[in-house]
Computed example of a mutant assay.
Amino acid sequence: MSQTNIVMYMEEELSTEKLENILLEFNAKNQISSWAMERSNSWIWVKYYILKHHDEIRDIWCDISKDMVKDVEQTTNVKTAFFIQPSRDRNAVFFALSFCKEIYTILDTNKNVFLYHGASGFFANEEIANLQFMNTQQFYDSRFANNAIVESIIECLNNEVTGGIECVEEEGGWDGEELQYIDLFRNLFKMREQLQVLVKSINNTALFNAKIIDIDKLILRLLDIDDEKLLISAGDQNRDYPINSWWWHLDQVKSGVLKVHVEEGFVIYQGQIVLI
């Protein structure tokens, strides 16, 4: 199975009305046997099966779950399956997970719900509601953060922001993919937000502080050379975050109203010092 496959199984059959409301929210296009959804030039395709009508799909479910679900009854009760196939770009995987989480919100969570992602593994019920990205290809249960997950988020942010810098400096621009980059940066800033919470929750700020400073320097460097202001646009929907989450307020950083001192660990806004 391709690493970009996301497969969701559940014990209940969704009502047509509930499913159509979700599809409408995602502006899904009916493709007869599936639905296609697009956001910022990233696509996901969704197929919905009632397993009692599809022995082959049920066999796939049993094969996936045999080493992961201890209670055999859980595997035999499952009635419904969603196969979500994102296109092979980073944003589509973020997009697909947001669709899975939305489907999960309308389910009876007292019944079994399973989510399998080839690159990340197998998740069930409450885990699904707590999934966050640790890089652009894998996600994890945010309740069980550890040093390895923080390292993965740091590595991802470093690589992706560095890639953005190279795109501008070496290739001369965004290759007409501005919408995709805005969406990517928005998701990277969400990961930067997670990082702030995670490092404090595992009480290991000293271990990661230097690496986080390096990431923040890269963000500010990219801001300086980003003539298209894609990083600024990425924060448009999240200006209500506290000012010390300065990555959402790069419009004010660019204008000089908000001054970021990453090495010292604070920002200055309207004459006030606020710790990061």
Rank of each mutant, 00 (worst) to 15 (best):
G176F: 01
F189D: 07
I268P: 03
W248K: 08
K211S: 15
W174E: 06
N238C: 09
V199F: 07
Y241A: 14
T205D: 13
M191K: 04
D214Q: 13
R192N: 14
G164T: 06
F208G: 00
E264Y: 00
V168G: 06
L223S: 09
K190S: 09
I182Q: 01
I243M: 13
L222S: 07
T205K: 14
K254G: 05
L198G: 02
D251E: 12
I213A: 06
K229L: 11
R192E: 14
S233V: 07
S233R: 13
W246N: 04
N244Q: 14
E177K: 09
E178P: 02
V199I: 15
L258Q: 11
L230S: 00
E263Y: 07
R239T: 02
L195K: 03
N159Y: 04
D227K: 13
R239S: 08
D183E: 11
G265M: 02
E178W: 00
R192H: 15
I202S: 08
N238G: 04
N159W: 01
G173K: 05
E170S: 12
I219R: 10
A210G: 06
Q180S: 10
W248I: 04
W174Y: 15
D251L: 05
R186W: 02
L258G: 09
E228Q: 10
W174S: 02
I213D: 04
K200S: 07
G172W: 03
L188Q: 01
D251S: 12
L220F: 11
S255V: 00
A210T: 09
L195C: 05
D216I: 09
G163L: 07
N209W: 08
G163I: 05
I243H: 03
E166N: 12
G163A: 12
L184M: 06
L195D: 01
D226G: 03
E155F: 06
I243N: 02
E170N: 14
N187W: 02
Y241N: 11
K229G: 09
V197N: 07
K254E: 15
F189M: 14
Y241R: 15
Q237W: 12
K254Q: 14
I243L: 07
V197T: 09
Q194T: 10
W247P: 03
D226T: 02
E228D: 12
D236T: 14
L198F: 15
S201H: 10
I268K: 12
V168P: 05
T162N: 08
V262N: 05
G173E: 06
L188C: 03
W247Q: 11
E178M: 04
N209G: 00
V257S: 11
H261Q: 06
I165Q: 09
E178D: 12
I215M: 01
G172I: 11
S245A: 08
E170L: 15
T205A: 13
E264S: 00
N203L: 09
V253W: 04
F208Y: 12
V253M: 08
E166M: 09
W174R: 02
E169M: 13
Y181N: 04
E170D: 14
N204L: 08
N244K: 12
C156L: 05
Q252V: 00
G163H: 10
L179Y: 06
S255Y: 05
G256R: 09
C156P: 02
P242T: 09
R221H: 15
G265W: 02
C156H: 03
D240Q: 08
S245I: 03
T162E: 13
G265L: 03
N187L: 01
G164C: 15
L223E: 12
E264W: 00
L195F: 03
